[in-house]
Design a protein around this nucleic acid. Structure first.
Length: 564
RNA sequence: GCCCCCGUAGCUCAAUGGACAGAGCAGCGGCCUUCUAAGCCGUUGGUUGUGGGUUCGAAUCCCGCCGGGGGCGCCA
């Protein structure tokens, strides 16, 4: 919030300098308002002069000095002084009472604090998870869900209108759905005592047996006879639906809800796939070769052309996916985000090529690739799941370490980094565990409020309390962190980087713990106590808001389980 | 062979192209009669894999090389 204000003053000063003839430039280049690492360089610093030096044909320090001398008068309300330093930085030193002004601003905005108008109501579609309905959600899907959902929350906070969508790969004629149904059917027959053998490429997890068992419980042996093709079709539907329901339950328990579950099959039913193929043909980017229909993706930078319809007449996954994304474009979003695992990165080029082939701007589609997740128990890698066989399910990890810890750990690293999660660490109720560090700060604030109430201390009125008494360095450090929330949200959106918010949460918690140790709230002299109580409330609002964006709870109390 | 991600302190990782590269953990030394010690303070620890380039300024951008992970199907 302060940052934007400072940026505006600097820009106005530069223009004023040009009008007075002190500076010459065509147009203002982009510049940043930074927080210097070293406090001796002030509270905020602008790098405009260096960026402008070439255009202005002057050395950066002279440019900075020209800007400094044209700083608008109203800046002096908050700014004590501006200095030119280093290579040409403009360093801003704030007046001591800015801290009170920031705290009051946060209290006034309350739960709205951090909300931006950056998005201006632009519509964003975030498609994520989109797991195949042939098995439970995995550890990797969990990362997808956590990143996608938090990204959605951040975009919402930034003022975008967001839709969350899950694409269901439920094409009835697809190989995977057939194999899955065949696997369930085989298990079902085995339950009935028939000597059925699992097909090639079968799904071997225990969950397949569970589904077969449930079908048997519900329908008895009524599928033992009958037309095999009809039975198989029925199994496709039942098994797929059961898997989907389970995935939806897992996601709901993980705090993730979708606005729309988009069925691949619905595209076939509506004729959207064949319409898309027609469109590609009409535009000259689909052609027949060796009995198959190909997408001429090389025309748009892909390394080779891709099959849309196989020689046997069956459309590939790609055909439906192109139709799906065509549908997204037709819905008119300003931005579309897909969240894909690293194992799908090879599909980015062909999808973008397909969109270009259809005449759409491929840059409106942002495909975010996240790297793999490894699970450890201490130093030991965990690879297998009892229930699912070759992969670890999201449900198992939620059961072991809880939603809060898991979501936090998923968002601790950039999506560009492979992620190692240590179950033992995530379960540990100790200083090693960053989740508790943040939540503990929130619980401590609540504890202060409780104790204040017990002692009959009245809740101060933010508008009637003098906050200029907040002058301790620890108070200033805390307020400055709190003031960063809007900027952090803006940066997280700009870089599609939800993990910034976990880092921010940790920084706010650190600043608060420091304040807590240095500055006594209850028992301070009355005016200071009132101001500090309000500062803790502003901190609580900021922390709660940040945790909410991460999908992590903000507990009002935390009791450490006694280790005997 | 081609494509994507990563390489930063002993370990796990931060760092919108900015000033002296920061945290946590581990190590060492301190701090609880007062709002929760799941906390705080101090301290040790670095040629940002490597060689070039762009820039006023590079961990960050570009090129080469080395190392680790992932992907290259008429599967999804």
């Amino acid at each position: 919030m302060i940052r934007q204000q400072v940026a505006e003053w600097v820009a106005r000063a530069a223009h004023a300098a040009r009008e007075s003839g002190a500076l010459a430039f065509e147009s203002l280049p982009e510049f940043d308002i930074e927080t210097p690492r070293n406090p001796q360089f002030g509270d905020y610093a602008a790098n405009l002069a260096m960026a402008l030096a070439r255009q202005a044909r002057r050395n950066p320090r002279e440019v900075a000095e020209a800007i400094r001398q044209h700083m608008p008068d109203e800046a002096s309300a908050w700014v004590e002084r501006v200095e030119v330093a280093g290579a040409g930085f403009l360093n801003f030193y704030l007046k001591p009472d800015w801290a009170g002004a920031v705290a009051r601003h946060i209290l006034q905005r309350g739960r709205e604090y951090g909300n931006l108008t950056l998005g201006a109501g632009k519509r964003v579609l975030i498609e994520f998870v989109s797991a195949n309905p042939t098995g439970p959600l995995t550890l990797g899907h969990g990362r997808n869900a956590a990143v996608g959902d938090t990204l959605a929350r951040i975009y919402e906070a930034a003022g975008y209108t967001v839709e969350r969508e899950f694409y269901i790969n439920d094409g009835e004629n697809s190989t995977q759905i057939r194999n899955f149904a065949l696997s369930v059917l085989t298990r079902y027959r085995q339950l009935l005592g028939e000597p059925a053998e699992m097909p090639e490429d079968a799904y071997h997890g225990e969950y397949v047996k569970e589904i077969a068992q449930r079908i048997r419980d519900q329908f008895g042996d009524s599928f033992a006879t009958g037309d095999p093709e009809t039975v198989l079709k029925r199994f496709e539907q039942i098994a797929k639906q059961q898997m989907l329901d389970e995935q939806a339950r897992d996601l709901a328990d993980f705090g993730v809800r979708f606005d729309r579950w988009f069925s691949e099959q619905s595209l076939y039913d509506a004729g959207a796939v064949s319409a898309t193929l027609d469109a590609l043909r009409a535009r000259g980017y689909a052609y027949e070769h060796e009995g198959a229909l190909w997408l001429k993706s090389t025309a748009f930078g892909d390394e080779k052309d891709r099959v849309l319809v196989r020689a046997n007449g069956m459309p590939t996954y790609l055909a439906a996916d192109v139709a799906y994304h065509r549908d997204k474009y037709a819905r008119g979003y300003d931005r579309m985000i897909d969240l894909w695992g690293a194992d799908h990165h090879g599909y980015v080029a062909r999808m973008k090529a397909a969109m270009a082939a259809l005449g759409y701007d491929p840059d409106r589609l942002h495909i975010l690739i996240y790297q793999l997740v490894n699970l450890f128990r201490g130093a030991e890698p965990v690879r297998m799941s009892k229930r699912a066989g070759e992969f670890i399910t999201l449900r198992e990890v939620i059961d072991e370490i809880g939603v809060d810890a898991l979501r936090f750990f998923y968002l601790l690293r950039s999506h560009d980094s492979t992620l190692d999660i240590d179950i033992e660490l995530a379960q540990e109720q100790s200083e090693k565990n960053p989740v508790y560090y943040v939540q503990y700060a929130h619980a401590r604030i609540c504890s202060i409020a409780r104790t204040a109430a017990e002692r009959g201390v009245e809740t101060p009125d933010p508008d009637a309390t003098d906050l200029s008494v907040l002058t301790h360095p620890a108070e200033h450090a805390l307020v400055k962190k709190l003031a960063d929330l809007p900027d952090e949200i803006a940066l997280a959106v700009r870089h599609d980087a939800p993990h910034r918010l976990t880092a921010y949460a940790l920084e706010v918690a650190r600043a608060f713990h420091g304040f807590y140790t240095e500055c006594r709230v209850l028992g301070a002299e009355p005016a200071l106590q009132a101001a500090r109580l309000l500062l803790t409330q502003a901190t609580r609002l900021t922390l709660a808001r940040t945790l909410h964006l991460l999908g992590v709870s903000a507990p009002e109390r935390m009791e450490r389980a006694d280790e005997s």
